[in-house]
Nucleic acid binder design. Structure first.
Lengths: 162, 162
DNA sequence: TTAATATAGGATTATAAATATCTTATATCT
DNA sequence: AGATATAAGATATTTATAATCCTATATTAA
């Protein structure tokens, strides 16, 4: 009953892009280094985030990802469910047919409640709220923007060795 | 982010044993048939439930399982966590060291809240409440229902997600 | 126009977890 | 003693997760 790695990475990626702001192009390498995400895995995750219209992807030299919405318009729940599908917590809520005996049992109803509480909690939180306070992903001090944000972060030629 | 089959089976087993009442010996075959649980898997699950002192196991001819506590003294959360371990929902709550950057971030705090809500909801429900109304497992006696002990827990009295 | 850079998208591999069953041992009843 | 039933650990089987690889395509700069 644990969030997947992919979803945790997606959240970190979105937090980092939120600190950069909507429409600011950021390379995959930079995001991977700063948010501590395996670069290849991030590529895969970004595809899901792009399909869900949270980010936009630019190919080619100087390519990268950028936020396609305002952080205030993206909730934690939306990003999580983009990665793991709709949250259900237990099988009989997800697929009532898996309950062979009754379609309306008390156990079922407790899980329904738990599920709605959880989804409501995650849905109340937007990414602009998440970056207003200290988060897992370090934000860039304003004076650094414009300089190479990877300075001192990436050991030289990390991805060039493949 | 789904409850395991083993935990679902454990709940069904406990619901069924609760309808039988504390101290009533019931064969594994009967429980398996009535609660729709693979018999061999039930044996494995019963061992966990016995270790946690929810049930007592009698070996030998005419053996079986029986409830070792009153259903009112067993919560849904206890049975669930016996089977899947303590609920954490995400890794950075379970093992803060997995968060390489900050030990006190906003994302972390949202998951803490979600986790406590979920555990509180599951902890409010006891097995005597679960068998007072229709459950997934057919009960043997039809009981009188007075005031509904699940008020405040079941979905109809909760604020729902949009 | 070509070379270099970077992501797209599908395929593949590796690892871990969940699910289920099997086997030998032990306990209990008749 | 013989029949019946679970104990406990071992062993498959299946499924999901995590990560990486490969070929194609897009973009930029020389």
């Amino acid at each position: 009953m644990r969030l997947t790695r992919a979803a945790e990475y997606a959240i970190r990626c979105m937090v980092y892009l939120s600190t950069r702001g909507r429409g600011v192009l950021t390379s995959r390498q930079e995001i991977a280094a700063r948010a501590d995400i395996p670069t290849h895995f991030l590529a895969k995750i970004a595809q899901d985030l792009a399909r869900a219209n949270f980010i936009e992807i630019r190919q080619g030299a100087q390519g990268g990802f950028m936020l396609a919405k305002n952080p205030a318009q993206i909730t934690l729940l939306e990003v999580v469910e983009t990665m793991i599908g709709e949250i259900y917590l237990n099988d009989c809520v997800a697929r009532p047919s898996s309950c062979t005996i009754s379609y309306d049992c008390t156990v079922h109803r407790v899980w329904m409640t738990a599920r709605e509480q959880l989804r409501a909690t995650l849905n109340k939180v937007t990414f602009d709220q998440l970056i207003k306070e200290k988060s897992c992903v370090p934000s860039i001090p304003a004076r650094e923007i414009g300089t190479n944000p990877l300075d001192g972060i990436l050991p030289d030629s990390q991805d060039k060795l493949q």
